[in-house]
Design a protein around this nucleic acid. Structure first.
Lengths: 136, 136
DNA sequence: TAGTATCCTACTAAATCGATAGGATAATTA
DNA sequence: TAATTATCCTATCGATTTAGTAGGATACTA
């Protein structure tokens, strides 16, 4: 299951990408438009900021804004920041590889073989999709 | 993340598929070979049985066995039984569709659009992979 | 009828999820 | 400079899920 954090994060980013200008947008504005709890959204936007996807400005007229052009924000980045590794098991993860302690041989492991295919296909989708594609 | 339940379930099924005969195999045997807690495995095999994938026999010489030829067991079935819906959000699920209460229009929803692609690709993999493929 | 192995229910510790609370900090405006 | 605004940050919390464990009931075999 996709976490609400990721779901809301993607919605918020798309909302920002659909904006005409790149002026800061307040949390409250996004929250209202996308039906997301203000406080929860706040924490999500904060992690997006900490990971270099969003910029922010404090005070009156402040808010969050995209740091890059939507077409330069691949969904691989967004997914990794919000949801974590794209792979369903650590032993097939490109960026967070970890050996399974119960599995003596990855070469003969059925789960490993199956999940590599899933990872490759998901990766293809996320790599080929940018924020611009989602914003339409 | 793939749950251990699903991971162990796939491993157990593959173990059974690799067996020469279709004679019942005891939980303890699979447990030892695949490094899975006996009790946890027990509950997994039970749900696989309840969902028509495995058969069982009680008493001495008993155990679990595949009900169908491995090549007739698609991974879609296994995944749905063990892990649940293949889609990452209910609003793109084929078998367990549910409308998001926060989302006014699926047509313009970025998450919806993205997750349909992921679902389609995962579905393709799971449909085209049978237990026989994993057992080699 | 003793032994074996599945069947079934209930319980639990730990982790994660989806928030919420409340104050600190920084920028703007009057 | 003082008030206002809006992000920043830490901490907490209830509910749910996960990954098991315990222990007895049932059914089959020898």
């Amino acid at each position: 299951m996709l976490s609400k954090k990721t779901k809301y994060g993607i919605k918020a980013l798309t909302f920002l990408a659909r904006q005409n200008s790149r002026k800061p947008v307040q949390i409250a504005t996004i929250s209202k438009s996308e039906n997301i709890s203000v406080k929860f959204l706040e924490s999500i936007l904060l992690t997006l900021k900490k990971n270099g996807i969003l910029g922010s400005k404090k005070g009156s007229g402040g808010g969050y804004y995209l740091l890059k052009d939507p077409k330069d924000v691949p969904m691989t980045l967004v997914m990794r920041v919000l949801e974590g590794p794209i792979a369903m098991v650590p032993c097939v993860s490109l960026n967070y590889y970890e050996k399974c302690d119960d599995c003596p041989d990855e070469g003969t492991c059925a789960v490993h073989r199956l999940m590599i295919q899933i990872r490759d296909n998901s990766l293809k989708v996320f790599r080929n999709t940018t924020l611009a594609d989602l914003a339409n």
